[in-house]
């Protein structure tokens, strides 16, 4: 695992092991409107990804030790950030600057515009470009995802000390990983990319809420519940 002679910290290897396999999209066939079909297919995928994300969160070391209230709060504020780390990672190097939501759901700028996702396209491409320049390793991606959840600034926090410990353990794992690669400055760079991730996720949440409330796009129950929690 470590090119520099092993590391004591087991958090990142555990995150790599428990990283869920990417889901495939189920093409919606309820409408002839191709843009609406794209949107419904995407919302169905997001709903299933959310379900997987909740199961994944429970496996992050330290998460299940948090109070149920804090587990809920962190997920309610951080879920979109955690999901978008995956989308931006998959979209790296994609042809025609597509957004790769799944291997069988790749949307270019025109398709996003037609589906009412122009705003989302713009911010997600920006995030993807940033990660591309940083040349993230898989270890960094899984850690970034867990940190996005841990750092979601949920308010109020039920047990601040436990949440702080949860954050510290992930931060420590990242620092240990980067120092084992002799690239200590990367931990800071990764942390400095979190504001853009937060901003991108906020725009994504606004986009889906607008589509649902103003354009009556039907959403699955779990996705709607999590969007409403924002």
């Amino acid at each position: 695992y470590s090119p520099c002679g092993g590391t004591r910290n087991k958090v990142i290897p555990h995150l790599l092991l428990t990283e869920p396999a990417p889901l495939a999209a189920n093409q919606d066939e309820s409408t002839n409107d191709s843009s609406l079909r794209t949107l419904l297919t995407l919302c169905d995928l997001l709903n299933r990804e959310l379900l997987v994300l909740i199961g994944w969160a429970k496996q992050i070391p330290g998460f299940s030790g948090l109070s149920l209230v804090d587990q809920m709060s962190l997920l309610q504020s951080g879920w979109m950030e955690a999901l978008l780390v995956g989308v931006a990672w998959r979209s790296q190097g994609a042809a025609r600057e597509e957004l790769v939501f799944a291997r069988n759901l790749r949307l270019d700028e025109g398709q996003c515009q037609a589906a009412g996702l122009a705003d989302l396209y713009e911010v997600l491409r920006h995030l993807t470009a940033k990660y591309e320049v940083m040349k993230l390793s898989p270890e960094e991606v899984v850690t970034l995802k867990a940190m996005a959840l841990a750092n979601s600034d949920a308010d109020p926090v039920d047990c601040p000390d436990s949440v702080q410990r949860f954050q510290d353990e992930l931060h420590e794992a990242l620092q240990e990983y980067e120092s084992s690669r002799r690239e200590q400055q990367r931990a800071g760079r990764l942390l400095m990319s979190l504001p853009l991730l937060r901003q991108t996720a906020d725009r994504a949440v606004q986009t889906f809420l607008r589509l649902h409330h103003h354009h009556r796009v039907p959403l699955h129950k779990l996705l709607l519940e999590m969007l409403d929690a924002k």
Binding site: I54, G55, Q71, M72, Q76, L222, E225, D228
Partner: peptide, 20 residues
């Protein structure tokens, strides 16, 4: 927590079926 019923259920149990 009625408003966040599904998340609550999913976190409490990994096995109980949830209406999505």
């Amino acid at each position: 927590k009625e408003k966040h019923k599904i998340l609550h259920q999913l976190l409490q149990s990994s096995t109980s079926p949830v209406d999505l």
